[in-house]
Nucleic acid binder design. Structure first.
Lengths: 210, 210
DNA sequence: CATAATTTTGCGTGAACCGCATATTTGCGT
DNA sequence: ACGCAAATATGCGGTTCACGCAAAATTATG
């Protein structure tokens, strides 16, 4: 076991992230297929090949499991924002960071269509089912806090004292959520990217009366 | 029973609203006093003088009960917004509607200090305890939807098709939440009103880099 | 290879949530 | 004022959760 395979650190960490993803994905898939109430924790655990007790070691509720994937994606915005050069105008960095998140993550490059459809159905579930909605919004709030910190570092403001960084973060999440809602509702379907850019620009422009 | 006391319609509706308020208030008070996990549904029901089963007729979870008061207050913003004259500039109406919500509601004009303190502690609880956070954010989302509809009616836009009304609504809630967070955190304490006005103005102005 | 650290698992407990049937209360017409 | 219909409150029972705890299994380290 001395010769390392791939990961710089721990096979442990990797396995943990894997089962976490497995569980979240299983939760989404099953909930989409048969409806949230017809899925027991036991089912999710079984589908992920793990004991029911272990499920609760990773997530403290079904909702948390379902939202986990969304949370991970939302948090990528923060790391992406930190990656942008400090010389770049702030709002430009934000737009970039948010749009990158639209690209399919490294987890989902294989089967394009069927999995993508289920992911969309999953999002729809998250905003529809009351039991999941709360967790969904909590995930957004967590990402928002991260964005606020990043913005504060970047602009030399103070998250504790100044309104500015949190307002920016809140505005970003607001734009994201509004765009998502419209995208889910649109019939015929529309592209997410222009919707999101439009929403961000409108907020940055200060919402002039149309 | 022919001589009516006060309410135009139904004593039934009144009693219902009363027990609802009783339950919510009891839930907040108990949770603040002994911590959320040390409060059973049974305790809340008893404190409100109803059966445990009845609690679940009103709320489907402890969190929902705790947040109910906050929800009612948030929804008042919508009705207040509708009350403003259509001739008034939109953003001005919004600022008014939001600020009115800061005045103590009709439910809380008696004991000023001790109850107010507990209300503050209640809000702090709502944003701190994970189990309540979700419900808290859901309440905000519900109010946000109401605001969006009102804004759409007012500006002749379409909630389904246009981004504008939802963006405005989301911005309003964003400002409210950010202001609330800072207000809760501020030491020494600060006035809520100027904080909120400032947040709303910054968002309306389009978040220029400071 | 042995030992320590971390993770998984099984079991038991208390509580939550809800469907259903029943009792109680309220509104309304006469 | 009285009785009937509708709405609401209650009691009971069943299912599922969520989690603490201790033992087994897995992984890292020297």
């Amino acid at each position: 076991m001395s010769i390392e395979a791939g990961g710089r650190i721990g096979l442990r960490q990797r396995k943990k992230a894997e089962t976490r993803a497995m569980l979240s994905w299983a939760a989404i898939r099953l909930a989409v297929e048969r409806g949230l109430d017809n899925v027991r924790v036991e089912d999710i655990a079984e589908a992920a090949g793990v004991s029911p007790r272990t499920f609760n070691n990773y997530f403290s509720s079904k909702g948390e499991a379902i939202v986990a994937r969304h949370l991970d994606r939302s948090l990528r915005v923060v790391t992406e924002l930190r990656r942008r050069p400090a010389s770049e105008p702030l709002w430009e960095s934000i737009v970039h960071a948010v749009l990158v998140q639209l690209d399919p993550g490294p987890e989902l490059s294989g089967q394009p269509m069927p999995e993508h459809q289920q992911w969309v159905a999953g999002i729809r579930l998250m905003v529809a089912e009351p039991a999941v909605q709360g967790e969904f919004l909590r995930a957004s709030a967590l990402a928002e806090a991260g964005i606020a910190t990043a913005v504060a570092e970047r602009t030399g403001t103070d998250v504790q004292r100044d309104l500015y960084p949190q307002l920016v973060a809140a505005a970003v999440m607001a734009a994201t959520n509004v765009a998502t809602q419209h995208w889910l509702r649109a019939d015929p379907p529309v592209e997410m990217r222009p919707l999101l850019t439009e929403a961000l620009h409108q907020l940055a422009a200060g919402l002039p009366t149309p």
